[in-house]
Nucleic acid binder design. Structure first.
Lengths: 296, 296
DNA sequence: CAAAAGCGGTTCAAAAAATGAATAGGTCAA
DNA sequence: TTGACCTATTCATTTTTTGAACCGCTTTTG
């Protein structure tokens, strides 16, 4: 949309933090971009950038404006996708921000199901911790978020809640592998591999440990659940993950942690509050809702 | 906003029904406008107008687009007004679509109260029947609607409901003027002056008459409540109006119709569903809500 | 402490885009 | 069939946007 390029420039400047950098990004001269902004500010009736010695920054007016710009652009894309839809082309793009647990198993399966029916639809999948996922949603960078225990920002509208009991991951020959369900105190006797602080699983474990006046002392911290799973094989340590992220794997076994110690974590499916999603995203969201019911 | 002019052109064409007419309205050549539209359609990825022998008309894609355009423009105005608000200027514009009953008394009073506090805010007040009011709301031509018994279109979001018992208007020396409350059958003995079909009052009267297997035979129909009120003075006929539209007037008296015959009509305050109103409009709406509580 | 680097803002000639006037070519109604 | 009215196209002209060079300023760097 060529006539909306000013908006795109404004976004680029906000992102880059300086007119010159943004000019470079957008393949234009700094002078041209500068004048564009000045003209826009005049039309708009207010400055939208603070001029700092080392660049520019959105002022409050600019913050309001960029919110409008983003929502407007997303809405226009939605309209375009609706139009494409009614002309029978059925294409579109769906962007998902999700917790790591969804990456190996659940999401690939769901996306492949969806694309079997709508091969014209493309996807982007971004792994985000619970905070970043919400930011992405409210910046219109992602249409859909599927995250464990987010912070519930105001912009985040929950569509579906799935309780997830944290599972203990260990080798089949691990002493704990015979128990039906595992108590938290039992875990503390063994080497633990824990996810780093930004993850929901860690958050839940910490909270539970605190309530039981225990502390977690992991031998390894990692931000990769994949790594942790593999490590459990090597050292015969125990790792933790939510069921939706687990697949049967040779040599490993999974047991639920007792809900007496740790309440189930909530896996939340949601979107930007009040936003009308593009056709493709809305349909994919519907599919996810149905698929998630299995876990209830 | 100069860079959004294409959108304004599209709106003008949709309104005018032909590129030439719109070109004239917008002080531009038909050829220039035509090319603009063609370029836009190419960028947009779909035609938005049906080319007819006698002009053009929005096709379904165009309908979707113009919805977006209108909501987008309204949102931008809102952002501008918010910006003005935070720079302390406190200006803005409020547009109200309302039933005739609100015009003589209620709205002028409310607007004057509001403007006493915010003299920078301007108003437009448009009298609309219940259908037109809803259309205005969903076209973003009005921010706020205050109408009797609208049809409840999906886009219309009700903020406040005020029951209004229809009153009979007559001269002080009219035979009915002594009754505390008046039955519908009594009215039929006298000359009646009725509003035309598009008004809520007429709608309610007709429905009530039908239930009682009676028919209304007005000696005069009018679309002006002001006229009807004055006419009651001359012929000693009876007219009808809702309480919110009535002020004491020398020589005239008002009596409620019995709710046994006619259920109270609903005066509805509302706006476009899901729309974020500009600051000024939102505040005025709040004030109206409070003011209307008196009638409950 | 001085030079360098990085920033937004300004100026002016050059390039690009939008425009107007004229006109082609179509459909419909009388 | 004619005339009215429409969209679409072409091309010279006008308007707008752009790039290059430079100014004045602040911060960083050596």
């Amino acid at each position: 949309m060529r006539h909306l390029i000013t908006f795109q420039y404004i976004e680029a400047i906000a992102r880059a933090g300086s007119i010159r950098k943004a000019a470079e990004d957008m393949n234009i001269t700094a002078s041209a971009l500068n004048r564009r902004i000045q003209r826009f500010e005049e039309e708009f009736g207010s400055e939208i950038f603070e001029r700092l010695p080392r660049g520019v920054r959105l002022n409050p007016a600019g913050e309001l404006l960029i919110r409008h710009i983003r929502s407007q652009e997303s809405d226009l894309r939605r309209v375009q996708s609706q139009v494409a839809d009614l002309s029978g082309i059925r294409r579109g793009h769906v962007s998902v921000a999700c917790s790591q647990a969804l990456v190996p198993y659940f999401l690939p399966a769901q996306i492949s199901i969806y694309r079997r029916e709508h091969p014209g639809v493309t996807f982007s999948v971004n792994v985000r911790d619970r905070e970043a996922a919400e930011t992405d949603i409210s910046n219109f960078k992602s249409d859909i978020a599927l995250v464990l225990e987010p912070n519930f920002m105001v912009d985040f509208q929950v569509q579906s809640v799935v309780p997830q009991i944290i599972s203990v991951i260990m080798r089949e020959d691990h002493p704990l592998s015979h128990a039906e369900e595992i108590r938290l105190r039992d875990c503390l006797d063994y080497s633990c591999v824990l996810p780093t602080a930004q993850y929901g699983v860690r958050h839940l474990l910490e909270r539970a440990a605190e309530e039981n006046s225990r502390t977690l002392s992991p031998v390894i911290e990692s931000d990769s659940f994949d790594f942790m799973r593999h490590y459990a094989l090597h050292e015969n340590a125990i790792a933790f993950q939510i069921p939706i992220g687990l697949e049967p794997k040779a040599g490993l076994t999974y047991r639920p942690l007792s809900v007496k110690d740790i309440p189930p974590g909530n896996l939340l499916l949601g979107q930007m509050r009040g936003r009308a999603l593009p056709v493709a995203s809305a349909k994919f969201m519907q599919q996810l809702e149905i698929a998630l019911q299995v876990y209830n």
